[in-house]
Design a protein around this nucleic acid. Structure first.
Lengths: 338, 338
DNA sequence: TTGTACGCGTTATCAT
DNA sequence: ATGATAACGCGTACAA
């Protein structure tokens, strides 16, 4: 297979100069005569020369790309966060390699291995819901590859992280439900292994305790991130002999399911049931009644994670204490709460 | 900066064999003794050796990655399509580099240039809405880098494409509106440069013509892909002295805007206004009434595009006639149509 | 200011 | 079955 791609050598030969001269001229190296620089650049332009980043990267010891490992692109929060990362990466000339785990630890492990092999400059990771073994993350750190967790983090690994105040905002949401007259408040959460779900549960618990509300086991629901599990769990919760009159849901997706089930069971929102979701997805404001939810600074979270990652990349030998950045969320009250 | 990464050389030295032997052993080359193969593999495992893909790629002449260039990740269709591509790429050991143009041609051009430099194995592209100059695509073809368009294509470039039968399904949708009694049917479309919007417009026109409906200029709307433009356009359309009694919207997003405006103006859906969207986004079924829409085979489109791209990658010298794969969409009728 | 020589980590080719 | 050497395309230290 013949490869006609133009390379430094070709330009050098035509101009009867050395490859290094061409290399320097193209990168505006200071000690190069204006004349040759322009000759070189002109010819490069004519020949449609495109530098080979792979060769450059081999010298750099890493790719000009960062790896982003997330559960699912279709979770709106991640799509937004990635836009935030892009803004940072683009300016620095880095690409973003996105990999979805689909909530599978095995895929997560394979992806990490694969990306290590690709010699990406660093990782930004949000854990799969099923991940409880952290050896693959430890491996990243052992190899001293920059790593930042965001949103769903892993406490066992000593590294930077960017998260949201899940505890605080959940507490605040439940506070609101209490103040607006709810008496039987439930938490509709994700799988029991998921950190952020548990943090929100703690916030929920704290708010109840503050107001001397009892903790009722039936009102604390854990369910998988798939519509069927959620639908069944919703049926059980709303079908209790003493059903809740308010629910804090782990996500807007879960809240949608609760809307659906409530409609089917003839339960009116918000008079019989107050509902608060999480994420402020675009459709939330279109529901009838519009869904109250927690707006997450997803774009900012992605941007911040990328900024911190590039600090690590650009100062690889700095001794640093792993920092945890906590971004503030905002409770958005709409028609689904009283 | 010391880099302690284990490489072939290290393993070779410890085992007192040559680098080539190690290289071959690790890749299960046939002509290597079982004994050494196992010795090598065992040590590699112990030392936590991870092959350097960058070095490999330098020889391959291209990265083990494909570039995916799309308008926006937050359009649900693209998130789904990417999952389809991932399924194919993963099996072949390729990564996916995703770049968003945010509907800007300038970004699109920069991204293409950047990805060419990165020596990705191929491109899968869906055009930015504003792109009317195609030189950057021509450049890809000139360099003989595999390229597949999907969803939003570019007719001027001779290459493979995977699209949806926009004409046919729009015609079918309008047919349905006519048969269910609508008399004044409007098309609420995207920017005038966007191919797929125009194809749908042609389908709309064809259906009207089939039934001897007049073509009314006021009923054909072009608007930008941002909420404000859409909101204003919706106001103008619904505020006409003789407003439409049915609308085919270019996207569910646009349909949402029409819902909102209709509510504000006290127009009832579906009795006073029938509405059909495009994309079957998750939230469509939750609206009241639920939105009738066109379900697009987004996952299949991504998967097919990737399959075709890898055909190009694996058979670079095949003479081939650029193929156009047209996937079928499906009209999903719900409460927003009569 | 420019050229020479070597290294980045791996694989392919040719030799043994 | 294994080893030696060159090559992939570029950047850089050192020399001139």
């Amino acid at each position: 297979m013949t490869d006609n791609t133009i390379k430094l050598k070709d330009i050098a030969r035509i101009l009867s100069v050395s490859e290094s001269t061409v290399s320097r001229a193209l990168r505006d190296h200071p000690r190069i005569s204006l004349a040759t620089r322009e000759r070189v650049k002109k010819l490069a332009e004519q020949l449609d020369y495109v530098p080979n980043q792979v060769a450059r990267n081999l010298q750099n010891r890493h790719m000009n790309a960062i790896g982003v490992v997330i559960p699912k692109l279709s979770y709106h929060l991640y799509a937004q966060a990635i836009s935030g990362m892009e803004e940072v990466a683009e300016q620095l000339g880095y690409n973003i390699i996105i990999c979805q785990t689909n909530e599978s630890t095995e895929r997560e492990q394979n992806i990490v291995q694969e990306l290590l092999s690709t010699r990406i400059a660093g990782f930004i990771i949000s854990l799969s819901s099923s991940t409880v073994d952290f050896e693959h993350f430890a491996k990243i750190k052992r190899r001293k590859v920059p790593l930042v967790f965001f949103n769903r983090e892993c406490e066992d690994i000593h590294t930077d992280r960017v998260i949201i105040d899940n505890f605080g905002v959940a507490r605040q949401a439940v506070e609101h439900l209490i103040r607006s007259g709810s008496k039987r408040i439930a938490y509709f959460g994700g799988p029991a292994e998921v950190q952020i779900s548990n943090r929100r549960l703690e916030g929920y618990t704290a708010a109840l305790k503050d107001h001397q509300f009892p903790l009722i086991a039936d009102y604390i629901v854990h369910t998988e991130f798939n519509p069927r599990s959620a639908y069944e769990a919703a049926g059980r919760l709303l079908g209790l002999s003493t059903p809740p009159d308010a629910i804090l849901a782990f996500s807007d997706q879960f809240a949608y399911t609760l809307y659906q089930k409530a409609r089917e069971m003839g339960i009116d929102i918000p008079t019989e049931l107050s509902l608060i979701g999480f994420n402020n997805e675009p459709a939330t404001s279109l529901l009838l009644p519009a869904l109250s939810t927690v707006d997450q600074p997803a774009f900012a979270m992605g941007k911040t994670a990328a900024e911190i990652l590039f600090q690590q990349i650009q100062h690889p030998n700095d001794y640093y204490r792993a920092q945890t950045k906590v971004l503030q969320s905002r409770l958005v009250l709409r028609g689904s709460t009283r």
